[in-house]
Design a protein around this nucleic acid. Structure first.
Length: 261
DNA sequence: TTGATTGTTACCGG
DNA sequence: TCCGGTAACAATCA
């Protein structure tokens, strides 16, 4: 579920419904205890996303840091409250809506200092207007690591997940095993711009759409992606090679994305 | 019931 | 210091 677009969409939505509200924070299963009581009754100033990290800011200077990990989910409910479904770790209650956070990897109250540290260890986020892509290019062009690994490394650039990785590199005809130092500035800019465009489409439609003109409402995501989890290339019809980087699936068309450097 | 999964972190060895 | 591998952890769905 969560790549950068999911979190940015949630941030926009939650900011709209929660900012300026006094939040009641509760942990239905008692599993979220660390600092939670401190947030109850505080005023929510703003909600924002940094890559896949979601931050709720409070007027006290505290922040709630949420990361969904691989399995986490966000559910929004209209009041009156329904019974929490599944493993809800924290529930944020406004005056018209409530937000349930299910199964996050991280769900923690940060003080100002810790929040700054978090933003400092993350690379520039393709979805943020304040992002500086130069920082990402600098690291990539100095690394011999494969580009397929680098663009998903959140400390180098943030927002891209496993599906967008294969899709962006295919769209830009770049082999995932190309070393970072062989990526020109021009090629990097194509990756950055395509990521930005695709993730923005994702925010708009709440779906991963990498096929030109594909409609979000029609069918499942398999029809909206080009090569992720596919067996043949939609352009040249050659078989797609599947391999792994750090235990995550990568898909490449060796004909459309020749390894050349 | 089993297995797969849009992720991160810590730790270790080369 | 950098880089790659491994394990641990998480909840839901097909």
């Amino acid at each position: 579920m969560p790549e950068g677009h999911t979190i940015h969409r949630a941030a926009l939505d939650h900011h709209r419904i929660m900012a300026g509200q006094k939040l009641m924070v509760c942990s239905p299963q008692g599993r979220f205890t660390e600092g939670a009581s401190r947030l109850s009754g505080q005023l929510c100033n703003a909600v924002e996303a940094f890559g896949k990290h979601l931050i709720y800011h409070f007027n006290s200077g505290d922040a709630l840091h949420v990361h969904l990990g691989l399995f986490g989910r966000i559910r929004k409910h209209k009041l009156p409250l329904s019974e929490p479904r599944g493993a809800v770790r924290v529930r944020l209650v406004g005056n018209k809506h409530a937000i349930d956070i299910n199964g996050p990897t991280i769900c923690k109250v940060l003080c100002g200092d810790e929040f700054v540290k978090l933003t400092q260890r993350l690379g520039p986020d393709v979805l943020r207007s304040d992002a500086n892509p130069d920082l990402a290019f600098k690291k990539i062009s100095n690394s011999k690591t494969q580009i397929g690994r680098l663009i998903m490394d959140q400390s180098i650039m943030s927002g891209i997940g496993n599906i967008y990785r294969s899709e962006i590199l295919w769209r830009q005809s770049i082999h995932p095993e190309t070393p970072g130092r062989a990526i020109s500035r021009q090629t990097f800019d194509r990756i950055w711009e395509d990521a930005k465009e695709l993730l923005n489409i994702g925010v708009q439609h709440n779906a991963i759409i990498t096929v030109e003109g594909a409609r979000p409402s029609k069918g499942r995501y398999r029809e909206r992606v080009n090569i992720f989890s596919k067996s043949t290339c939609p352009v040249c019809k050659e078989p797609i090679r599947r391999f792994e980087i750090s235990g995550r699936r990568v898909f490449v068309c060796e004909k459309c994305q020749p390894l050349a450097y």
